[in-house]
Amino acid sequence: MMEWIVSILLISGALFMLVAAIGVVKLSDVYMRMHAITKAASLGAILMLASVVLWHPQWIVGIEALMVVLFVILTSPIGAHMLARVAYRMKVPIGDGYVMDELKDAIEKGDLDGDSENKITDSIDQEKI
């Protein structure tokens, strides 16, 4: 019985990762590819870790698997957010079929200038130089 559960978890996790990779090839621009990676790939990792924990029921395995799950869940949205923001500032072209783009209007109006985080890091850099 346990063998079947572990096998199903392992196969479904691998399939989710495969779907994320297909999405990276198929979807049309950077932002949609980030959608695929932050969601499908992290769920795939979680399912596969669950299969390891069920197959090796020891404390240390559970704790390490929990650490991996926490890192993946907490850090992948932050990484995607920072990368998407920089990609938009780099003027990476957006794909077809966009219905609205309110971020472009905001950047043209200058709403996003004077980023406090930018100012702090810039002042630190100048002091060092």
């Binding site: 990762m17 950077v30 790939a41 990368l83």
Partner: peptide
């Protein structure tokens, strides 16, 4: 573009964990 390639780095890390 360069962000496309960095996104792939994220994907490959998940695949290596798998």
């Amino acid at each position: 573009s360069l962000p496309d390639r960095i996104v792939v780095m994220d994907l490959v890390a998940s695949l290596v964990i798998g």
